[in-house]
């Protein structure tokens, strides 16, 4: 079972595991679970490792060949979704 670093912003109620290229995230408080596709999993692993938003944006841009602006926008949307689902306990986009 994978845990997240303390400064990752990920809620303490969340646990996750990677299976193949896909991450499965479980919110232990709500019992809801989610699966992430390859891109989502890529971002999630960096987030769980406590990487700041700027580093994640840079990595996304390099991995998927998109501009920095596009990568930043994709990341912001993803983090917003995670916050709505209460998977993030605080905003980490800054």
């Amino acid at each position: 079972m994978a845990g997240a670093k303390q400064n990752s912003g990920i809620s303490a109620a969340v646990t996750w595991r990677k299976t193949g290229d896909e991450a499965v995230i479980l919110n232990l408080e709500t019992s809801e679970y989610y699966s992430l596709n390859e891109t989502g999993t890529f971002i999630w692993e960096l987030l769980a490792a406590g990487k700041p938003a700027a580093r994640i944006t840079e990595a996304l841009s390099a991995e998927y060949g998109v501009t920095a602006d596009q990568a930043a926008e994709d990341l912001a949307d993803f983090l917003k979704d995670l916050s709505k689902l209460k998977i993030l306990s605080r905003e980490t986009a800054k």
Partner: peptide, 13 residues
Amino acid sequence: MAQRTPVKEQFSR
């Protein structure tokens, strides 16, 4: 990117 699928209440134990 994310899916949402609930788990039955009985499994929360």
